[in-house]
Design a binder for these strands. Structure first.
Lengths: 341, 341
DNA sequence: AAAACACAAGCAAACGTTTGCATTTATAAT
DNA sequence: ATTATAAATGCAAACGTTTGCTTGTGTTTT
């Protein structure tokens, strides 16, 4: 004997009013007398009326929902991003539909599909490692669904973008190591298919080129992300006696692996070898020696992505020019890169 | 001159069919001839038809969407939880609507409201620090929306629950410290309004009682969560010369604060003082000495929560008895708690 | 006192699906 | 040839809102 949820129709019936009146009363329309409004609202309260957002969405043609696609929800960077997105979106009255691609293109396509079908008002995405074809994203654009790319972006797509200045940050990282007196600086890079790693690599290369070093040959190791990969790499370098005197790693985890390997082989950091990481993972300030790294303002990136999206939604105008917001990561100097002389 | 998205009505018109036929063809109903199916499906493909999930939801009375409410998306534990939930839900064809309460009851209520209005099929929640009144959750139950509580739960509410066995884990933590030869074991607790901290405290107390220690007086410090709070606490204990010889902290961050303070005061861990934390935060195995802690299987908890929910949704039956799934956290022994003799 | 005007409320269509039932057509059973 | 049966399609209502338009009152203006 469960009573089903009450609708405006029920209320109208009970109060001997028309549903349009009830609807307007609940939405505080000025066309309705205060008297009736109170009557309706009180009764709605009493019967625990909850507006059916689905019906409303259908009628209004929009659901106040934003879709978000990230590679992995539980990576610190992305969970911070989501945090920021949710914060802004929620206080603007939007809901957040979240999908993760697990770094797989197939899942990403699937997610985009779901979001389109759900008629989200906009989509924020950080593309997967595999994403090299952009057809699914073009579909989004063609449907006039505002699309914002963050962090990992497809440069060619004409969408708003929120990114870090990876090039500049890397350039600064190398300069910092040079300033500390290191001379043979290696770069540990990630999968170059992802633009951020490519950019960090470029920043590194340029900085080395621009340096006053006599030996300007870059030392690059690609596709190293986990600490164990880095550990192996560093161990190999030690036994091959090819140890550089500094590392700029494109990820903190890679930096950590290097650090562990060096410690295990009694090579002193920062005295013998300097290290700079990237992302300012929580552990960087906790380990010993604390790791120099870059704060990416991930929460703020999320907030900004949401803000841009809201702006686009609320000031709908023709022929917008896609803009790109670039945030400079902040170098956080810690022990691992300051040579005690 | 933008063409609006095509609907089954458009397809029906173009193909000179009835919309019901189109609908059935797209849903692969057996009532439709293969011929017509192919015709419809091909045409739908051609015009890039996307079913309007909102309309479908309205008609069907359900939207294949699950709501999730957590205190903070970007805490490791919760982002892992979400990861697990998303994984299971997504492959079962459900969408995930995420809200964070920011540890505020008001936000939590608001989130629940939104989710009810969105007519989600079920809700998974980890309640906020402030949540002491459960009216909003009762509303959910009264509306027959399946509700699953995880980790932080309101015991009195008759819902399914996925929890850690905090009592048992704490008991084991203390036993482990006793086995390592520590004799004055303190407990650093969190806000006791949250059940998990209460349970951990109880486990600690019981273990001390059950011990063979001559001095069985518990040493408890409440409401310490951040590492800086713990740092201050430990520093105070040192200057007051009231240092216990071991700490079991209800959070890794508290444990970290203690550890830092001890190191800064040249007290050796684990030789002079032992430490055990809780949650197995990523940093625990990275710092030196590595911190003994408890893995909570957070991803698996998320998966399990989602599974339970799906089960409840798919095998709808009257008078279900709410069940509680308890997961034993796993003690991960690291350096910080093994006394080298 | 008639015309003009607000104001409040009602009517009905629309959003895009799904689905029970009715109808048509082709096929099988008598 | 007639009827019963099955197969394929069409019709129309329903889900719960929102909103332009119409209608009915009572108040103001001339």
């Amino acid at each position: 004997m469960k009573k089903k949820a009450s609708t405006i129709k029920d209320i109208a019936q009970a109060l001997n009013l028309n549903i349009s009146t009830v609807s307007r009363a609940l939405n505080n329309s000025r066309k309705i007398s205060d008297e009736t409004k109170k009557l309706v609202q009180d009764y709605a309260e009493k019967v625990n009326y909850r507006p059916n957002a689905i019906a409303s969405s259908l009628r209004m043609g929009r659901g106040n929902t934003i879709g978000l696609v990230v590679p992995r929800i539980n990576r610190q960077f992305f969970s911070n991003l989501i945090y920021g997105v949710e914060e802004v979106l929620n206080s603007a009255g939007y809901n957040l539909l979240i999908c993760q691609s697990n770094e797989l293109l197939e899942n990403e396509k699937q997610a985009i599909n779901t979001l389109i079908n759900a008629r989200v008002d906009g989509i924020i995405i950080s593309i997967s490692k595999q994403t090299a074809s952009y057809k699914h994203l073009e579909t989004v654009i063609n449907r006039d669904i505002p699309l914002i790319q963050t962090d990992r972006v497809a440069d060619l797509l004409p969408t708003n973008k929120i990114v870090n200045n990876n090039f500049k940050a890397s350039y600064i990282a190398v300069q910092h190591l040079l300033d500390s007196g290191y001379k043979r600086i290696a770069h540990i890079s990630g999968p170059l298919a992802i633009n951020i790693y490519k950019e960090r690599l470029n920043g590194y290369t340029k900085a080395i080129e621009d340096s006053r070093l006599s030996d300007k040959s870059p030392i690059i190791f690609e596709n190293i992300i986990t600490d164990s990969e880095a550990y192996k790499l560093a161990t190999g370098l030690i036994s091959d006696k090819k140890m550089p005197d500094a590392f700029f790693a494109a990820s903190d985890f890679a930096a950590l692996g290097i650090l562990k390997a060096l410690k295990d082989n009694n090579i002193r950091v920062p005295d013998d070898v300097g290290i700079v990481g990237f992302a300012n993972e929580p552990f960087t300030e906790i380990i010993s020696p604390a790791l120099t790294s870059f704060d990416q303002y991930s929460i703020e990136m999320g907030r900004e992505a949401a803000r841009i999206l809201l702006d686009e939604l609320e000031n709908k105008q023709e022929n917008r020019v896609p803009k790109q917001i670039t945030i400079d990561p902040r170098l956080i100097v810690r022990e691992s890169s300051i040579r005690r002389l």
